[in-house]
Amino acid sequence: MDLLDIDARLSDEQRLVRDTVRSYAGDRVLPRVAGWFEEGVFPARELAPELGSLGLLGMHLTGYGCAGADATSYGVACRELEAADSGLRSFVSVQGSLAMFPIWRYGSAEQKAEWLPRMASGEAIGCFGLTEPDRGSDPSSMRTYAKRDGSDWILNGAKMWITNGSVADVAVVWARTDEGIRGFVVPADTPGFSAPEIHRKLSLRASVTSSLYLDDVRLPESAVLPGVTGLKGPLSCLSEARFGILWGVVGAARACLEAALGYARTREQFGRPIGGFQLTQEKLAWMAVAVQQAQLTALHLAALKESGELKPHQISFGKLANVRAAIDVARQARTILGANGVTLEYPVIRHMTNLESVLTYEGTEEVHLLTLGKALTGLDAFR
C-alpha cells in the first residue's frame, strides 16, 4: 500500500525500529487489544517493562537509559504503535514526551537521576497534569494553585482527562504560583494526592484515563522543576507529544486501509468481490492518497525536527491535517466493511472511535486552525 515507496527513504536503523515495533505490536497487542477495548482496560504494568526493554520509553531523549533515537525513528515507532491502538501509542507518548521530557529538559540533576532511569525501563510510570475540569484549551487560566509555606509548597486543585493517571508513580503537575506557572514533580504516594480512574468512555477504552486531585499536597522545594517558569514549560511538552501524534495517526489510518482492502478483496456481492467495483476502488484510492500524504507530512516534519528547524505552527499543521485525514480514512473504511465495520472483529470501529479523542486532545482542531491563522496573518485570534 506504500504507493509512493515512502519507507524506502528510511535508514536501515529506522527500518529496524519499524520492524521491531510492528512485530512486538503484532505479537503482544493485536491479539488482545479488542478484548481490552471491550472491557475498558489497559495492562499498563504488564506492558511498561516490555516497552522499556525495547527502548521505546523516552526513546527520543538522551542519557539516563534513554535510547537517544532520532525524530524519524521516534515517529516510526509511534506509527507502528498506533497501528495497533491509539491507547498504546498514548501510553508511550505520555510517558516519554509529557512526563519524562519535562524532567529531562527542565528538571534538576537529582530529579533526573531519581526518575528518568526508572521511567525509561518501565519500572516507574508517569503522567502529565495540565488540563482541568473547566480549563482545557486555555491553560493560562488554570485554577490549580501552589503557594509557598516556609521552605515547602502547598498544592490545591484538580486535573482531568489524564492518561496513565491512576497507574502513575509520579505526576508532572502544572500550577499557578505568585511567580508564574511552575511544574512540580509529585510522587503518587504523596498525602493529599489521588487519581481516580474515569470510566464509561466510548473512545480510547484500551487506555487508562483519570482525574487528579490535589488536596493540600505538601511538597519540598526540590519538587519544583527549576528550569522553566510560565506556559513555555507545558506547551513545549505538548509540542513533543503532538509530534508523536501526527506520526501515530498515520498508523491508525493505515490499519483501517489494510482492513478495508483485505475485506474488499474477499467480500462478494453480485457474484464478484466488491473490490472490483469502481465505487469501492475510488474509495480505496482516495484512502491510500490520504495515508500517503499524511506520511509525507510526517516525514518532512521529522526532517525539520532533526535539523532543529521545526516550529510550533508546523506541528499544528501536522496534527490538524493528519488526524483529520486519519478520521476520514477510518470512516470510509467503515463504509466498505458495511455492518461488519461496527464489530470488534475488525479494527476499524476501534480506530474510528479512538481518533475522535485524538482529534481533540493535545489541541482541538479549532486551536490548531487558529495557530495556523496567526502564522498566516500575524494576528492573534485567541484573545
Rank of each mutant, 00 (worst) to 15 (best):
D5P: 00
L10E: 13
Q14A: 15
R15Y: 01
L16V: 10
V17W: 09
S23L: 09
A25T: 14
D27C: 04
V29F: 03
G35V: 09
E38R: 13
G40P: 10
A44D: 03
L54Y: 08
L54P: 08
L54W: 05
G55L: 10
G55N: 03
G58A: 03
M59K: 02
G68C: 03
D70K: 02
A71R: 08
G75R: 02
A84R: 04
A84S: 14
R89I: 01
R89W: 04
M100S: 13
P102E: 11
S108L: 08
A109E: 15
P117I: 01
A124W: 09
F128C: 05
G150L: 09
N156T: 11
M160L: 01
I162E: 09
N164Y: 01
V167N: 02
A168Y: 04
A175E: 11
T177V: 04
E179P: 00
R182A: 06
R182S: 07
A188M: 10
F193W: 10
L202A: 10
S210M: 05
L212P: 02
G227H: 07
G233N: 05
L238R: 06
A241I: 04
A241D: 12
G251D: 11
L257W: 10
G262W: 05
Y263F: 15
R265Y: 06
G275H: 06
G275N: 10
K283S: 14
L284A: 07
V289M: 08
A290P: 03
A290V: 00
T297Q: 12
L299P: 00
L299D: 14
L301Q: 11
E306V: 00
S307M: 12
E309M: 13
P312K: 12
Q314L: 14
F317Y: 15
L320E: 13
V342W: 11
E345T: 03
P347S: 01
T353A: 06
S357Q: 09
Y361E: 10
Y361G: 00
V367H: 08
L369T: 09
L372I: 13
L372Q: 12
R383T: 10
R383V: 10
